[in-house]
Amino acid sequence: MSMLPEDRDELMWELARDPLSEAAQQYRQRYPEDVAELESRASMLGKFTAAKPVGPAIIPAPHVLLEKPTPEVRMPRWSLGVAAALLIVSMALGYMAITRPQPQNLAIESGPRSLQATENQAKDTADESGERRIQGTNSGTPEGVDPNVAPGSNNTVPTGPQPLAPVQPADPTMLPITIQDEGTSLRSVIEQIGMAAGLTIEFAPGFTDSPVSVRYVNVPAMTILKTLGQSNGFTPLNQGDRKVLIVPATDPNAPVLQDPNMGTGQGLPDPSGNTNPGLSGPISR
């Protein structure tokens, strides 16, 4: 480190860049004690400057111009916000779908006629189509069932928390429907039942039509068809896939459906005031 004053040191470095200048000569005359230092610095800087590499003989082409220009795709900033918002919303919906309470093995029909469940302690019976029906003897309080409803009581209209959407029965032939008509053709009645339950009715050859009067309130479609079949000489055969074949024949060994409500015995009162709710059966033929 030089012990010279800072301004003199700076001046000497500046003069050392051009030691032959008039200013350098004057400095030497004024500060003869610094001559050796000035010569040393000038020598070093002279060598340093002389070491500068020679310039390029040929200037190459810029590589950036040899590349194919790539179109710059710039997304507007607001699109990032929109994407982030959509992501958050989708995550929230997914979280809600996962954490939303699901009704556990419990189905309440669209009609208040019956309540389906697989409750372990429920007494159940099998109807003709193999469906199991709860008769209202729940000892537990599964979700969706009002715990205040007395076991075995006839009131099966759910008063407790309801599932968000009514669940249709798995078998469309068990969909309870209401139909009332007088003096209309049997074929038309069967077709109306099919339409109401979303079934495709097919009539086998030999089916004979006849006028009937019917009134059924909240009775499963298949039950109505079977009851009609017993009194009108045909048999409804569930073909699956929502198809029902009407065969103009009856099984003489088939049990007679005395109680068209198929053992549930539950149902809403007939809006017409009939004290015998449910299936009223054909009024007349």
Binding site: P53, G55, I59, P60, A61, P62, V64, L65, P69
Partner: peptide, 30 residues
């Protein structure tokens, strides 16, 4: 884009000198 070639040519020599003084290797400086 082609106009950049003129900028490149104009500043290449001094840029190469500075780069070579730092990396102390000609081809690396290029």
């Amino acid at each position: 884009r082609a106009a950049f070639r003129h900028l490149f040519d104009r500043h290449y020599g001094r840029s190469l000198s500075v780069a070579q003084g730092i990396v102390l290797h000609r081809s690396e400086a290029e």
